[in-house]
Design a binder for these strands. Sequence first.
DNA 1: GCTTCTAGACTGAATGTTCAGTCAACTTTC
DNA 2: GAAAGTTGACTGAACATTCAGTCTAGAAGC
Lengths: 217, 217
Amino acid sequence: MRENGGGSRDAGERREQMLRAALDVIVERGYADTRIADVAEHTGTSPALVIYYFKTRDQLLTEAIRYSEDTWYAEYVQRIEQIPTAAGRLAELIAMNCLPGTDPEPNSYWLLWLDLWALSPRNAGVAAVRAKSDERWRETIRSIVLSGQEAGEFAPVDADDFTITLSALLDGLAVQIALEDPAVPPQRTYDLAMRFASGQLGFDAKPVPKRARKRGS
Amino acid sequence: MRENGGGSRDAGERREQMLRAALDVIVERGYADTRIADVAEHTGTSPALVIYYFKTRDQLLTEAIRYSEDTWYAEYVQRIEQIPTAAGRLAELIAMNCLPGTDPEPNSYWLLWLDLWALSPRNAGVAAVRAKSDERWRETIRSIVLSGQEAGEFAPVDADDFTITLSALLDGLAVQIALEDPAVPPQRTYDLAMRFASGQLGFDAKPVPKRARKRGS
DNA sequence: GCTTCTAGACTGAATGTTCAGTCAACTTTC
DNA sequence: GAAAGTTGACTGAACATTCAGTCTAGAAGC
């Protein structure tokens, strides 16, 4: 049936294909209702093959979430690295958290976070992914703040306090974005987060953000 | 087998008993893994009886979550009503969001919120509960701000902006509390939220909060 | 005796996972 | 360089279990 009956097929490629399919399904139906049959269908294969690559459903889904988080972070790093000012980097970070790109499925990351949080209390693997992701994110904010203060761009507030507060604020706004609360449209979350950050750190809130074009320059 | 084989038993009492049992189970195992049999066991009855009272599992669980949100809000109202100053009311509101009581299961509400958020995108009933709860909560904050400004306690910031920002901040902090992130202990979330609020509204952050004793003055 | 409760046995549909074996490519052996 | 052997990707058909929801019958109250 396959044009490539057996034997070949790049190994890791299949895995990634399945991880991406799993993410699609999780976003569409939620973690709990994601069946391995769905993932198989999305990849044009059989359930048996899915567990051939991932021993269990849970491993597949956990790995998919980790994959997503890593991808997201990598994209952030890529976007940020040529921005010279700390204020600019912070603005980009906030934009990534608040402004959904015009992507295939727009709210994917946000929805994923909701599942990630809800799963963490009872799923050690998922909890580990979240803990790492959260820590990485906070460290990122912290280092922007410190570098901005060193450069004299930012006021000398306590970096840890600011970091925790901003990341919590962004998480909370992410909930509103994911749930598409009509009272809190994405652009507004960006404005509010920026106002908070610029107010605390004492820099001028830049004009409008140039909207995110996904990967590719 | 039951000392009360059939017949009597206050009607609504059984329902509430089941709702509370459902909440216990949801907190313990998560919404997705909450089975009718668990709820039956917690109430010392049979699965069939649970279905007798709630037509479907989904109805039971949705109603349980609504029940929890209403209870939580009612408790807030009760605590707040004799506090004279707007600053005091705001502090109590923040305390309720940030400081887990020394209750039976400490983090129950927070964990419930995570499930509530994760469920909302794909479950209309749950989404309605959340929307209402969120709206009610924001309206509460807004009215505290407005009354505080009228009384001259608070600076004349934009009430809507402040409300959305604070409620998002509290949601984000709730995630950290629910997940028991070691970097963000509950007391710290309270301090940070209070610092934000007092900074924005320009009132003195009161000393330590008298810790929450649950219901009963 | 009619209504309200209640339990136990049961059913039907999913659905994760296993398993035996197929199929093509590569490697070894002669 | 071909036959024989080996390996890794892959599948279809079972298997086993889990669970929401039903059905029947019986007990309690009016």
